[in-house]
Write a protein that binds this DNA or RNA. Structure first.
Lengths: 151, 151
DNA sequence: TATGGGGCTTCCCATGATTGGAAGGTCAAG
DNA sequence: CTTGACCTTCCAATCATGGGAAGCCCCATA
């Protein structure tokens, strides 16, 4: 199977398959005599695994760990679970952060008349850096969030 | 005031001040005879405005709009409010997406014994791309999220 | 058999916001 | 007059992804 088929069947674009190979996330594919990459069904499983983990917001580094565990027949399920739970904690932290932002902004917006007149407290508050809600954004962990234009 | 002081007082790093100037987000600073950038109190207000908007997750493009409204004394407060509300909708959508991811992962993790044995349904489910929860990630808007390592 | 089209290859570039660093100029205090 | 802290510009890297160019390969059809 060539890379285009592998892409269609796995949900990972051909571009990204090459990229994942290049950065060592997945092993080098075997090649035909003419240089085309060749994939087996097993590779499709692996790629789907990657695609699914990626959709769940795992970073490349985390997917590397997951793939290692996936391939390791002697793995401890506790290791996998710990990884998933760490990711859940990350996500919950991000969610809380975004919720703070949304609540703050909503509070600002609700104080604005939203009419033809120029007076708008949103701009004043942004300028003076008052906090509508006491929560402190600076310092909250935001590392490693992957943005995807997941069609 | 030189750029280092401006950075300290505004919460925007000197690096970023130069970058914002370069991309046209903020106007070119005046210079001393020796080429140093010079800032007035008014500039600090502007930089603080930018910093605050950035902390609320506005993109550079959105901050450009906000700055224009901030400087426009004849602005309609409705325009500002609309911008803030659009941002809130964005945030709520992102939050829902992350919540889906977290819930799905938590579901996967709860099915895993988390012990010394290798059997772990998380890996199986990732491989077969089953969905624990029916919600469909693909298609949810994720554009324009800014990740910041907001110290 | 020739040709056309589509898929494959590598390589380079761009994104967005930010940080890091190198090489060199400027300024104030000691 | 030296030292060190600041400033300048320029270049590179980050992360995951897409876009595109130039050139090769393979298959079907005229």
């Amino acid at each position: 199977m060539k890379i285009g088929d592998a892409a269609n069947r796995s949900g990972v674009s051909a571009k990204m398959i090459r990229y994942y190979e290049q950065i060592g996330l997945i092993p080098n594919a075997s090649r035909t005599t003419s240089g085309y990459r060749e994939y087996e069904l097993q590779d499709i499983h692996m790629l789907r695994f990657v695609a699914r983990a990626r959709d769940l917001g795992f970073s490349i580094a985390e997917i590397t760990e997951l793939l290692d565990l996936w391939r390791d027949k002697d793995r401890r399920s506790a290791d996998v679970k710990a990884l998933a739970q760490a990711r859940v904690r990350d996500l919950r932290r991000k969610i809380a952060h975004l919720q703070d932002m949304a609540d703050t902004l909503e509070g600002l917006a609700s104080d604005c008349a939203g009419n033809e007149r120029p007076n708008c407290p949103i701009l004043h508050r942004l300028e003076t850096a008052d906090k509508e809600h006491g929560t402190e954004f600076r310092g909250s962990a935001e590392k490693g969030f992957r943005k995807r234009n997941v069609s």
